[in-house]
C-alpha cells in the first residue's frame, strides 16, 4: 500500500472528515486503497465521479474530493450508467455495500456486467448490514449470526466473484482489508481496465459482525480474513460454505482480466452507423 509519509489528503474531502465509520471498520482501509490507486494512476479528480448507494459503503463518495454522488439504495450502478454514457471522459467508480451489490441492487450489477460498461464497482463486503445495526445480508455466510438471524443464517451466501464472472464482468478480483499491499494494485487494474470491473474487498465490521459472531476486535478480524482466504490457485469455493468451513478456502486474487467489446464503444459504433456522429 502507501508508504509511510505519502500524503493522500489531496484525494480526500477534508470537510467531511472524520468519516462516519466505526473505530476498527475496514471501510477506511478500502477508501485508502482507492485513494492510493487514484494517486498511482494520476487520475484527474475533476474527471472522477464516485457514485455510491446507501449504507456504510454508500458514504464513501463524500470522502473523495471529486464529483460525488450518493444515490438511493442499490441504484448507484444505474445512475452511474447514465452518467458514464453521457460523459465517457469521466472515470466512474461505484463503491457498493452488501445490500447495494447483492440484494436490492443485484439486478443492476448483473446488467452492468452483461453490458460491460466501463465502470469500476468496488464491493465493500463486511458480511452484514452495518448502517441499520447488524442485520443479515445475502453475503452473510451460512450459520452466521446477525440481529435478523439470531439462531444462525439458514441461507447460503452469494459468492460475488462467481456472480460477477457469470454475469460477464471482464475484470474480476477479490481481496481483503488484510491484504493491503495487493488491494490498491487490484483497484488500479480495475480502473485501468476498459470494461466493467468488479473488485470485492472483504472488510471487517467489528461493531456488528465481529461482536455477534464472536470474532473479536478489529485486529482479530483482520487475522480471520487472512486465515479464511488463500491466494487464488484452485478456483472457486463450494457454494454452501459455512463460516467454519471457510477457513483457508476462499480464493483471493485476480480471477479475470479480459477484453470484450465495451458498451459505450458499441453504442458509439451504433451512432456512427445511424449517422448521428457529431
Amino acid at each position: 500500500m502507501t508508504k509511510p509519509g505519502v500524503d493522500l489528503t489531496p484525494y480526500l474531502r477534508q470537510e467531511m472528515m472524520p468519516t462516519v465509520w466505526c473505530p476498527g471498520c475496514g471501510h477506511g482501509i478500502i477508501a485508502r486503497g482507492i485513494a492510493t490507486a487514484l494517486m498511482n494512476l494520476g487520475v484527474d479528480m475533476d474527471q472522477l465521479a464516485v457514485v455510491g448507494g446507501i449504507g456504510c459503503s454508500g458514504r464513501a463518495p463524500f470522502y473523495f474530493d471529486a464529483n460525488s454522488m450518493h444515490t438511493t439504495h442499490g441504484r448507484a450502478l444505474a445512475y452511474a450508467t447514465g452518467l458514464k454514457m453521457v460523459n465517457p471522459n469521466l472515470t466512474v467508480i461505484v463503491p457498493m455495500g452488501d445490500g447495494d451489490s447483492a440484494a436490492i441492487g443485484g439486478n443492476h450489477l448483473i446488467h452492468a456486467a452483461r453490458r460491460n460498461i466501463d465502470i469500476t464497482a468496488i464491493i465493500f463486503n463486511n458480511s452484514i448490514y452495518g448502517m441499520t445495526g447488524g442485520q443479515s445480508a445475502p453475503t452473510s455466510p451460512l450459520e452466521s449470526h446477525s440481529t435478523t438471524t439470531p439462531m444462525g443464517s439458514i441461507e447460503p451466501a452469494f459468492d460475488m466473484v462467481e456472480l460477477a464472472l457469470a454475469a460477464g464482468a471482464t475484470y474480476v478480483a477479490r481481496t481483503t482489508t488484510f491484504d493491503f499491499q495487493e488491494m490498491p494494485k487490484l483497484i488500479e487494474g480495475a480502473i485501468r481496465h476498459h470494461g466493467f470491473s468488479v473488485v470485492e474487498v472483504l472488510s471487517q465490521c467489528p461493531t456488528y459482525y465481529g461482536r455477534l459472531n464472536k470474532l473479536g476486535e478489529a485486529p482479530d478480524m483482520l487475522l480471520y480474513e487472512r486465515d479464511r482466504t488463500k491466494l487464488l490457485e484452485a478456483f472457486g469455493p463450494p457454494p454452501e460454505i459455512t463460516r467454519e468451513e471457510m477457513v483457508g478456502q476462499l480464493p483471493i486474487g485476480l480471477f479475470r482480466n479480459e477484453e470484450r467489446p465495451e458498451y459505450i464503444d458499441q453504442y458509439h459504433g451504433l451512432v456512427a452507423r445511424a449517422g448521428g456522429g457529431k
Partner: peptide
C-alpha cells in the same frame, strides 16, 4: 444516448445520472 434499462427503477436512475453528466 438511448438505453433500454433492466427495469423502471434503473430507467429513472440512469436518467438522473445522465442529467448530472
Amino acid at each position: 444516448v438511448f438505453i433500454q434499462m433492466e427495469d423502471e427503477i434503473g430507467s429513472i436512475a440512469a436518467a438522473i445520472g445522465a442529467a448530472w453528466g
